[in-house]
């Protein structure tokens, strides 16, 4: 019973965080800002989903597999977003910063 309740809480939290990330992906004005929205969805949202499923699975091999999925996601997602941002930066896409409100592309 307690496990079911915890599953509810974690899955709902994960869903809300995921939709938040997606909404940020839609509304943020700039590519570099969108990366942050996606990083919410990749870190805490994924962790909430996996934890919710762990409470459903109990102690078995399935739990270990779930934790392996989570570890993989937490290692690969910063790596791929770093690679993405670095590629955009190398290609000359400049970030919109505080002072200048226009995201300007500089030919490098």
């Amino acid at each position: 019973m307690v496990a079911d309740l915890l599953t509810w809480i974690f899955l709902l939290a994960g869903s809300v965080l995921g939709i938040t990330g997606a909404w940020g992906l839609m509304t943020f004005p700039d590519f570099y800002a969108r990366v942050h929205a996606v990083s919410i969805a990749d870190t805490l949202c994924a962790a909430c989903f996996i934890l919710g499923l762990v409470f459903q699975a109990g102690w078995s091999l399935v739990t270990i597999k779930l934790l392996i999925v989570l570890t993989l996601l937490w290692i690969t997602s910063p790596t791929s977003s770093h690679a993405l941002v670095r590629a955009a930066y190398r290609a000359g896409l400049r970030a919109m910063t505080h002072g200048n409100k226009q995201s300007s592309e500089v030919q490098s």
Partner: peptide, 15 residues
């Protein structure tokens, strides 16, 4: 930008 597309596809994959 094409980077937005790759970012979105990456998120799609994680989900």
């Amino acid at each position: 930008k094409i980077y937005d597309r790759v970012l979105a596809v990456n998120m799609f994959g994680t989900k």
